[in-house]
């Protein structure tokens, strides 16, 4: 019975593949925890780099933690300000289906653009505006990077809104804008929050786009026009030094970054589960 042997053979291969995929996740997470945990201490998350920090003296990476939160937070808000109108337009206002098709196509291409290209584009934009690498520059580059992610995630939730609900709103005499803001947005609020968290998580982990545009500094972020530190670059730069103590801090920084990502991903899931109960289906 050759066919049953073949069945078993491929089933074994499939289970092995599943083990490789989930195993690599476990491998990555344990590497980060095992290497990062011993190097982690309170000073890492409460202090900025002191003099001689990069030679192994005292200090922490509070500058990078706050910087990353400011970068990703600002970028997510800016991206929301651009993507919410786009999504509402596509869902409620647009009449020309060829235009909608073109917009979706263009957003699909944006989704695939590598973050280093967003970084290079942000850099030329900064030169054009006469600015230097700064918090604002980083926010702009990241906002463009997050745009297609936000649009796609928000559209996915808005498609779920039953057509009858919109019809009911129109029948009561509401305009498209009123329907958009008071019915559709309210109805999909949990989903929109989930989309925002997703985009925030993508933004906070990205290094290549902020490399040119945000710069790096040992100070806390205070101004939109000053350079700002970020966690991914903290990992990258500290790993590049020859001093063992500093390299260990790169491990700890990576652990902090990974924990933030895990918390966001968990939050997204809980949020999605918790809020869907109150939504009209």
């Amino acid at each position: 019975m050759g066919k049953h042997l073949e069945e078993r053979f491929f089933l074994a291969l499939m289970i092995a593949s599943l083990a490789i995929v989930t195993g690599s996740l476990v491998f990555i997470l344990t590497t980060v925890v095992v290497k990062g945990l011993p190097a982690l201490n309170l000073a890492m998350v409460t202090q900025v780099p002191k003099g001689g920090y990069y030679l192994g003296k005292e200090g922490g990476i509070l500058n990078a933690i706050t910087g990353s939160l400011a970068l990703a937070g600002g970028a997510t808000l800016l991206s929301l300000a651009l993507s919410l109108p786009v999504v509402l337009y596509l869902q409620l206002f647009a009449r020309d289906s060829r235009f909608v098709y073109l917009v979706r196509l263009s957003l699909d291409v944006l989704w695939g653009i590598p973050s280093i290209v967003y970084g290079a584009f942000g850099f030329t934009l900064l030169l054009f505006l006469g600015l230097r690498a700064s918090l604002l520059g980083g926010i702009m580059a990241l906002a463009f990077l997050e745009l297609p992610i936000l649009v796609r995630a928000m559209e996915e939730v808005m498609i779920m809104v039953p057509f009858e609900l919109k019809e009911a709103s129109y029948a009561l005499g509401a305009t498209r804008l009123e329907t958009a803001l008071r019915v559709v947005v309210r109805q999909t609020l949990p989903g929109l929050l989930t989309a925002l968290l997703l985009a925030f998580g993508r933004g906070i982990g990205d290094a290549a786009s902020v490399l040119f545009t945000a710069g790096y500094t040992d100070r806390l972020p205070t101004s939109l026009l000053r350079p700002v530190a970020s966690l991914p670059l903290a990992v990258f730069f500290q790993l590049g030094t020859p001093v063992p103590e500093v390299r260990e801090r790169a491990y700890a920084s990576a652990l902090i970054l990974t924990v933030i990502i895990l918390v966001i991903s968990l939050g997204t899931r809980l949020l999605a589960r918790r809020f869907t109960r109150h939504v009209v289906r």
Binding site: I28, G201, A207
Partner: peptide
Amino acid sequence: TVKPLVDLLAGIPSVVYGLWGTLT
């Protein structure tokens, strides 16, 4: 159970992948 794990793999920042690569 597996699908969220695959999603999680997608969410890991690329510097963390790089760190994992250099360390292991």
